[in-house]
Design a binder for these strands. Structure first.
Lengths: 140, 140
DNA sequence: TTGGAATATTAGCCAGGCTAAGTTAGTCTG
DNA sequence: CAGACTAACTTAGCCTGGCTAATATTCCAA
């Protein structure tokens, strides 16, 4: 009813605050942290190089190095090399990493589904309609 | 068109990932961190006690103690006492803290407004309609 | 009046950011 | 083709922001 950008921005801020707190509660104490989960997700389609991962996660390269170190120690990913360029290190899922990714994703979707089941059909439709709009934000 | 909870959950996950990354980019390098901003926001209506703040931010008490220490050192909040109970410490905004809060909030809303202006009127309406639904999530 | 509960703080740990500096490998130029 | 620059990554050292466990203090109730 009131698509004035400034007023809407205030409302979005409020809801965002709610969602951020919700996420924090949801994420605490999982078998992988949400950052690790995100990185594992990036590897699902195959090996990636460090720079790609860092860029995709909006993080500096050294930060990603540390993340991958931890995932490697945990046996969830393995480093490799690029035969065409000896400078680049590749990273890929181990089978254990793939299993873990699947399990965590399943748990997340289950939890979210439960939340969404508590909504009415109409509310879900409203939410579904808004998703493409949310996906557009920040692409500017 | 497809408000099946499980399928919707998958889509929500994807969008959530996008929004989290967007937030991270947006928040980096601000004059106060987003946590500090959140705490300052909690103090806007007046003094609060430590336990209240910790609960509201879904954080353990020691974590809040450290946060408040930093904000106090920065001169943005001041600790006080409750005359009725000597165990409790209260926290309130200094005038500098209030100014800072206002400025950061203004900057955030401006940035968000700019994002939202790039959408069509219809997209904004769709988004506005979904906000109450998003606000309901996690209240289960 | 004493013992347990409530409120905070301190100390010490870990994850996850950052920059600066170092290493190794590719590339380009004179 | 040698030397310099660039690119890809890692290491080191710092900060924020979580956590638990241990400590003061203060309150309250038996």
């Amino acid at each position: 009813m009131s698509p004035d950008p400034t007023e809407l921005a205030g409302q979005v801020s409020t809801v965002l605050r709610h969602l951020v707190l919700l996420l924090r509660r949801t994420v605490a104490g999982q078998p992988v942290t949400s950052q690790q989960y995100g990185v594992l997700g990036s590897l699902e389609q195959g090996a990636r190089r460090m720079t790609e991962l860092a860029e995709e996660h909006a993080v500096q390269l050294p930060t990603m190095t540390v993340q991958i170190n931890r995932l490697e120690e945990a046996g969830l990913v393995a480093r490799g090399t690029d035969p065409a360029d000896a400078r680049v290190r590749t990273v890929e899922l181990t089978s254990e990493g793939r299993d873990r990714l699947r399990a965590v994703r399943q748990a997340r979707i289950t939890r979210l589904s439960r939340e969404l089941s508590a909504l009415t059909e109409e509310e879900r439709a409203t939410l579904a309609a808004a998703l493409p709009v949310l996906a557009k934000l920040g692409r500017t």
